[in-house]
Design a protein around this nucleic acid. Structure first.
Lengths: 226, 226
DNA sequence: CAAGCAGTTAACAATTAGATAATAATACAA
DNA sequence: TTGTATTATTATCTAATTGTTAACTGCTTG
């Protein structure tokens, strides 16, 4: 059931906080690594490749946002979970944090309970995604293992890109995915494809599925909607 | 895609490389400025404040890492994207580069395709994720993730500009937004549109929503009010 | 009642996505 | 390996939507 213990790297310049977090996370069964400033965080991250990194925003030798940005430039940290920790709970730094590519945001003072549950929740979310769960939305089932979409017991076979596209959109029904997001998620960061490529794939999916479940939001992107 | 062409400053002491990069980036629609050594790079950077700076690491009169460090000390270059370019593809110099505050790292010899896609990807990453949160004012919900306005469970679909307009106004209900503010927020700083453009959009929103939630403040601007 | 401002409308311009076919890349089987 | 089928991408053209302008109307206010 549980696999091996997840590794969590915590970076904060206050030893007390570090220890509180360590205690609570270890009690929960996680393996904890600590760092006391930004540079050390980067070093440890590269040494251990942890599953989750918790970064204090206010730290000496590179603040949390910087650390996050630096790590995110490396493909190997593209999917690593990152949580920001901060005393500032003002909107602007929150937004900046999330824009920089953090996955969640916890404000100080930290309640250990909140911290642990947020961490658990994050892992849950991700392992669900990673497991490649079959998505079931209304009468549509999208099975990433068999690469098959089932509509009312009728099976439709999609090509790889087509499938990845519909799977992405359907992973958050209703939510609009910007064309850029679709590009990075389905085609990858390095790949450059023309403007019409997405459209053509969308068209093929719509055609093959035969039902209207992809909605265009002009000038923005696409969304999955029944 | 949107807005004006991004400016990219390239610094390299080899004229050939400079020209290859310039050619490929200009073909992509970027505006290119060049510098042939570290000092010139700093001068040009301060003159143009480009969106992205590509620095060769090995350059006369200040190498790339030094240039990067110097620029990063200035607040105005805190958010400027920086890519290092280098013949050394050993880990240590890469890490050093990233720790100095670069956003990405490209090894020579450069494939134009890789370069262009990395540049595009970088801009994409930064420009991405506008997502704000859902605004709920009375019986009206404005959801920027789903790009939908809901009034009493009735969904209204707005065009992009219309949505951005209502989202801006509703972000601070009751507060009057000057016409100028609306222009810069929704249309962007450099865009010049006629006087009636805002009115027309306001009208369309009022029409589509069917309720009277945008109040005109004559001679001043508009505000959101139920 | 005149001046200033916003509302209205329709025409137009510009943008954006859909459709389709052609070409390129890839996978796969003989 | 070669040839074939499938899939992915690009190029073009078209259709639709969206955005902007311009001309006119009507309110409001001093």
């Amino acid at each position: 059931m549980e696999g091996k213990a997840k590794q969590i790297l915590i970076a904060d310049d206050e030893p007390d906080i570090l220890e509180i977090i360590r205690y609570n996370l270890e009690k929960e069964g996680y393996e904890v690594i600590t760092a006391k400033d930004g540079n050390e965080a980067i070093e440890k991250a590269k040494e251990f490749y942890p599953d989750l990194i918790i970064l204090d925003i206010m730290m000496p030798r590179k603040n949390g946002v910087e650390v996050c940005q630096i790590l995110r430039t490396q493909p190997s940290f593209q999917d690593t979970l990152i949580i920001f920790l901060t005393a500032m709970n003002d909107e602007s730094s929150q937004i900046k944090g999330l824009e920089t590519g953090a996955d969640d945001y916890i404000s100080k003072p930290i309640s250990p309970k909140v911290l642990v549950s947020r961490v658990n929740a994050l892992f849950r979310r991700v392992t669900n995604k990673e497991a490649g769960k079959t998505l079931q939305i209304g009468n549509i089932a999208i099975d990433p293992v068999k690469f098959i979409v089932t509509i009312d017991d009728k099976e439709v076979v999609l090509a790889k890109k087509e499938f990845e596209l519909i799977y992405l959109l359907a992973s958050k029904p209703g939510r609009v995915f910007l064309r850029n997001e679709i590009l990075t998620q389905v085609w990858g960061n390095e790949v450059i494809v023309g403007d019409r490529t997405i459209d053509v794939h969308v068209r093929k999916v719509r055609q093959k599925l035969g039902i209207d479940c992809i909605t265009t939001v002009k000038g923005v992107g696409y969304k999955f909607e029944i």
